[in-house]
Design a protein around this nucleic acid. Structure first.
Lengths: 338, 338
DNA sequence: TGCTGGCACTCACGTGGGAAGAGTGCCAGG
DNA sequence: CCTGGCACTCTTCCCACGTGAGTGCCAGCA
């Protein structure tokens, strides 16, 4: 096991490297942090840390930089979450409170998070799967054409066109609308399939096909996974990445465009608190030199979706984690109010 | 006026530079294009073209590169639009036909355009301002709370919460819904304000406040300019920009995040055909070293929105214009069908 | 056993001087 | 008005060298 001082050395290395973006040497370390020992001692500690794989040197005559494993230890054991200051919190609240609708909340959140962390912000929309149905509306656009509008408790609206197998009368439509809503309004998505199972039986035989079609469209809408949308912002911050641009930035930009990948990435984080995935811990190759800091958020106690930031592994973890957590908290509040 | 041959020289310079990304000299020109004259002659022509501001040299002992003015002349006079090949057209059609709803059409269009042109694709959603109302739905969520859902002929759905000044009965709501739809369904947005002007008069005095509130929310929704949303894709292609990265790419990424700027940019293009804005012709500073190729698209004969690509001024204009035009055409078809 | 100072060693990095090569401008001749 | 020739200008590449930061190791000391 590593001694207390060696952990301190690691912490100091991470902090300095995050600040200066340059490999940090033993001499600089003793000057900037009062470790109470000489550079030579620190060198021994660094050699030990390197043996254990927590730090590495880019080339022989350079200082050390933390490895993914080093950052992991730093995040888990050596650093806490740096809370936002009161003025910062007020600013977050003010900024989010001007929102007019869900899309606007998300858009503002992305911008805020990107500004706050100076990194790429990623916000997943409230997932449908844990939401409840507020209302289902059916509109007849043509004799055999119905528009299905689903309104969720998060204020989200989804619409689908349904081509009916047979013409469907206004009265039957009104009937279906009424029955449907009395059964599913206020219920969770997951419960809907069972609740509407026997609904076609209540209708005239010639309408059953249409009713089934409408219902299956509704169920599709509910489960459709790619309905989890993402909003991304602050990509310009990627330019602060490193100096060897094209090859660093390109795979990241590509990964960011693959929303499916990001959604999966966010979905994997099961921790109720802030989750940090460092470098190679991210399954996607393009993100192997980035870290993802994410957290769930939601209107109630429950997290309905995730938000987070993507940045270089060399990032200010305590600060970023604090910002992400704070933003998630206030977004949750805003959503609960509306 | 420039002689025919000088124009040919300019065309050759643009083509070569776009291909090689390197300043092109007189000797290389005569080798790759059979202009029928010697390098010395070409040099004289180049000197003339430089005097006129169509080309420039990065430094004394280098070849020439086209200026914005040079590209402008090239686009206007020297090059046409390169049509897509039949297989390409089929691929476009196939790819777009799998779409399930409007959002999906837009998402696919962005990806397609980015892949096709290997540049950044920008697609504006069908603008509300020229659309017509298909249906307005009013839902009572609480005694003094109404949800307004607007459905447009482009299949777009907008929802708004309305807090009523006074409780509003179900029957009054149904009445309002019926009257509202009979007046505005099928009408253009621009005409709606006049059509609903006197609507409150038809209601009981105690309901008029609520009716007015609902109507003004509707009007707000109709005119709200920022409801023109954008989808952007292919930002990874920016890495192919140049070799001097950070400073080239950063302002572009920043500009791309300012949707307002992009919307304005797209909106400015009045030409019914493909519009090209080159370098400094773009009002926004960040886009001064990029060109924007855009075109309107829409379900009917009329263009309801714009799409386009953003790329380096050194781009394959004929090819890009062809791709943009083709995609716009097929997107229009898809929208017309649905 | 652990810390310290000293010392030799290793590289990356910046600098400076050529040499090479591409491209130009100009001029005189056809 | 076009052409070949020629001198000139720069950038770019390469190599060699000195510099300095940082290391590893060792012997001495608490």
């Amino acid at each position: 096991m590593l001694s207390e001082r060696r952990l301190q050395v690691l912490r100091a290395i991470v902090q300095d490297y995050v600040g200066t973006e340059e490999p940090v040497g033993s001499k600089a370390l003793t000057e900037r942090h009062n470790l109470g020992v000489s550079p030579a001692t620190v060198r021994n500690d660094m050699a030990a840390l390197e043996d254990e794989g927590f730090i590495a040197q880019p080339h022989t005559s350079a200082g050390r930089i933390p490895t993914d494993k080093g950052y992991r230890l730093f995040v888990d054991k050596l650093a806490g979450v740096k809370p936002m200051t009161a003025p910062e919190r007020r600013a977050i609240q003010n900024f989010l409170e001007g929102s007019v609708d869900l899309d606007d909340v998300v858009a503002r959140t992305v911008r805020l998070l990107a500004q706050l962390t100076r990194q790429v912000a990623v916000v997943q929309y409230p997932s449908l799967t844990r939401s409840t149905v507020r209302h289902v509306e059916l509109l007849s656009l043509a004799p055999a054409r119905v528009m299905l509008v689903l309104i969720t408790d998060t204020g989200r609206v989804e619409q689908r066109m349904v081509d009916c197998p047979a013409p469907f009368g206004e009265s039957a439509l009104a009937d279906l609308r009424a029955r449907l809503n009395s059964r599913v309004a206020g219920r969770r998505f997951a419960d809907v399939p069972k609740l509407v199972e026997d609904l076609p039986d209540a209708f005239e035989p010639e309408d059953r096909g249409t009713v089934s079609t409408v219902l299956s469209t509704l169920l599709e809408t509910l489960v459709e996974e790619n309905e989890e949308r993402l909003m991304i912002g602050g990509t310009a911050n990627l330019t602060r990445f490193g100096h060897d641009f094209p090859f660093t930035i390109r795979p990241v930009l590509e990964a960011l465009e693959e929303h499916v990948v990001l959604l999966k990435l966010l979905g994997e984080a099961k921790d109720p608190g802030v989750t940090v995935r460092i470098g190679h811990e991210n399954a996607h190759e393009g993100l192997n030199s980035t870290s993802v800091v994410s957290v769930g958020y939601g209107s109630g106690g429950e997290a309905v979706a995730k938000l987070g930031v993507v940045g270089p592994t060399r990032m200010d973890y305590p600060g970023t984690m604090g910002a992400v957590r704070a933003v998630a908290r206030y977004v949750g509040q805003i959503l609960a109010e509306s």
